[in-house]
Every structure is written in structure tokens, then in C-alpha cells.
Amino acid sequence: MKGTISIDQERCKGCELCIEFCPNKVIYLSDKLNAKGYFVAAFDDGKECTGCATCAVICPDVAIEVMKS
């Protein structure tokens, strides 16, 4: 796994832009609700994340931190 991301559950508003633009489609909209009542995005660690940070670039709520080896 070259990269991984961590999504701040409480900052995320489930806008799905990260999901849309992730090249490897490693993010999905979970059925978990945060305090604001949004379904939050989640990282599918079964998939191959390259740490390209596209998700963080497009995230309107600075909810994603990206790690890369």
C-alpha cells in the first residue's frame, strides 16, 4: 500500500467530491452519521491508494489527511 488517508469524521459533510475524483475509487460514502447528521466518506483500505492526495485537493472541508510511503 503506497498511500493511505484519514478522514476527519466531524469535518466531512458527505459531499462526495473526493469519491468522485479519486482516481482509484478507494473512497466510499459510509452509512455512518456524524454529529452534524452527514453520512461521512470512508476509506476502503482494501483498495490501492497511491497517496496522490487528489481527494485532499478537492475536499471543501479540509477533512482528509494523506500519508504516503
Binding site: G3, T4, E10, R11, K13, G14, C15, E16, L17, Y38, G51, A53, A56, V57, I58, C59, P60, D61, V62, I64, E65, V66, M67, K68, S69
Partner: peptide, 29 residues
């Protein structure tokens, strides 16, 4: 694993009040 992307230092901790998918949040960052 090294951090490839983190919140900019000069951006405070407060959550954005913007609507989901709003461009202001990206521009602020």
C-alpha cells in the same frame, strides 16, 4: 509513511460553516 497532505498551519481548527460541496471551503484552504 510520510504525511503527503495536511491542513495548512495558518488555517484555524474551526470547522467550516459552508454547505457541502461549496467552493468557498476550497478557496479558504
Amino acid at each position: 509513511m510520510k504525511k503527503a497532505y495536511v491542513k495548512p498551519k495558518t488555517l484555524k481548527e474551526a470547522h467550516f460553516h459552508y454547505c457541502p460541496g461549496c467552493g468557498h471551503g476550497i478557496i479558504n484552504r
